[in-house]
C-alpha cells in the first residue's frame, strides 16, 4: 500500500468538506471491502476519510418507511425486529454476509457504494424498491433508486464528491412477504454463486404484485421481468414457480469465473429464484419461515 493520509470526520459536513471534489480520496466506513481491495491491487488513494464516528449516520428508523443510516451494520439489520418482520429479505441477506466479525463492521452504506453485483443486500433492496440519498456540499440531497445507482461492477451513478447518507425502503402493503436466497458452497465467509430476492403482495390467495431481482448473474444486480410476470396473477403454485425459474434463467446474463461457470449459473438462478418466490409467498400468507432463508429446501425438508 502507498502513502496515505488518514482523516476522521465526526459530522457529515466535515466529511463532505474532506471529500471535496472527490479526487484522490476514498471514504471508509467499516473497511472490510476497501482494505481487501487495496491488498488485491486497487491501491488506496492519497487520502482516506473515515466516517465511522459520525453518530448521525448510525440511526435505524423503522417507524414508517425504513431509513437506514449509511453506518447501519449487517449485525444491526439482523437484530432489528421491524426489519425481520416487515423487510424480511433484507434480514435474510444481512444474516449471511461473511461471518459475525464481517457483520459487525460491514455497513449498508459500504455495501451499496461498493456496488458488487454479488452483494447480498442488493437484490433485496431492489425488490423492496429502496432509494439511496446522496449528499454533496454544493448540491444538497438527491434521491436515486438503487436500480439506477448501480451501473456496473464496482460502479455507481454517484457523482464525485457525493456521500451516501442513508438508504430508504418504503413501507409495504398488508399481505406482503419477501425473501432472499443464496446458492452457496459453504455456510460462512461465502460470496454468492448466484442469489435471488423476491417481494410479493397477495389479495386473498392471488399474487397481485411481485418483484424479483437476481444476484451475481450480470454486471449489476438485475430485475427479472420474466420471473415477475410468471408469478403475478397466480397463487404461487408449482406451475407458476416453474415459470419463474424459466423466466429468471432467461433474464440472467451470467459470466464464468472461479466460483462457477456461465451454464451452471444460468441453470441455478432459476432454482434459486423459484425458492425465493416460494418463501416470499409463504411469508406473505403469514407462515413462519426461518431467517435466514438460506439454505432453503422445498416441501418435505422440515423447514
Amino acid at each position: 500500500m502507498g502513502d496515505v493520509a488518514f482523516h476522521t470526520a465526526t459530522t457529515v459536513d466535515e466529511a463532505l468538506s474532506l471529500v471535496g471534489d472527490g479526487s484522490n480520496v476514498k471514504v471508509v466506513a467499516g473497511g472490510s471491502d476497501l482494505i481487501v481491495q487495496a491488498r488485491g491491487g486497487r491501491e488506496l488513494p492519497g487520502n482516506v476519510v473515515a466516517i465511522h464516528r459520525i453518530e448521525a449516520l448510525r440511526s435505524l428508523d423503522a417507524s414508517g418507511d425504513l431509513t437506514l443510516g449509511a453506518l447501519v451494520t449487517h449485525a444491526d439489520i439482523v437484530a432489528s425486529d421491524a426489519i425481520r418482520s416487515t423487510w424480511t429479505a433484507l434480514a435474510d441477506a444481512s444474516a449471511i454476509v461473511g461471518s459475525h466479525a464481517t457483520r459487525n463492521v460491514g455497513t449498508i452504506g459500504g455495501n451499496v457504494m461498493n456496488a458488487s453485483p454479488a452483494m447480498e443486500t442488493g437484490a433485496p433492496l431492489i425488490v423492496l424498491d429502496a432509494s439511496a440519498t446522496l449528499r454533496s456540499a454544493a448540491g444538497g440531497d438527491r434521491t436515486v433508486p438503487v436500480e439506477e445507482l448501480w451501473t456496473g461492477p464496482g460502479k455507481t451513478s454517484a457523482k464525485p464528491g457525493e456521500l451516501l447518507v442513508d438508504v430508504v425502503v418504503p413501507s409495504l402493503p398488508a399481505h406482503s412477504g419477501s425473501a432472499y436466497v443464496r446458492l452457496e458452497y459453504r455456510r460462512a465467509m461465502e460470496i454468492a454463486i448466484v442469489g435471488a430476492a423476491a417481494s410479493v403482495t397477495l389479495d386473498g390467495d392471488t399474487v397481485t404484485a411481485a418483484r424479483v431481482a437476481l444476484t451475481a448473474v450480470g454486471p449489476t444486480l438485475l430485475r427479472s421481468p420474466a420471473a415477475e410476470a410468471a408469478v403475478i396473477g397466480t397463487t404461487g403454485d408449482d406451475a407458476a414457480l416453474e415459470a419463474v425459474a424459466t423466466g429468471a434463467s432467461a433474464d440472467a446474463t451470467p459470466i464464468s469465473d472461479l466460483r462457477a461457470n456461465e451454464d451452471y449459473r444460468r441453470a441455478m438462478i432459476g432454482v434459486i429464484a423459484k425458492r425465493a418466490v416460494s418463501v416470499a409467498v409463504r411469508r406473505a400468507r403469514g407462515e413462519e419461515f426461518p431467517i435466514p432463508a438460506t439454505p432453503v429446501f422445498m416441501e418435505g425438508s422440515g423447514r
Binding site: 488518514f6 476522521t8 471508509v28 467499516g30 473497511g31 472490510s32 482494505i35 481487501v36 491488498r39 482516506v48 473515515a50 465511522h52 464516528r53 449485525a75 461473511g98 461471518s99 459475525h100 466479525a101 464481517t102 459487525n104 463492521v105 465467509m189
Partner: peptide
C-alpha cells in the same frame, strides 16, 4: 491476511472484528 480465516480476530468495543481488514487509526478511541 484477507478477511477470511479469523486468526487475526480481536474485539473492538466488545465486538469481534477481523483486525487484518480494519484500519488501525479507525480504532483510536
Amino acid at each position: 491476511d484477507d478477511c477470511e480465516c479469523g486468526a487475526c480476530m480481536v474485539m473492538v468495543d466488545g465486538r469481534p472484528v477481523n483486525s487484518c481488514t480494519y484500519l488501525a487509526l479507525q480504532a483510536e478511541g
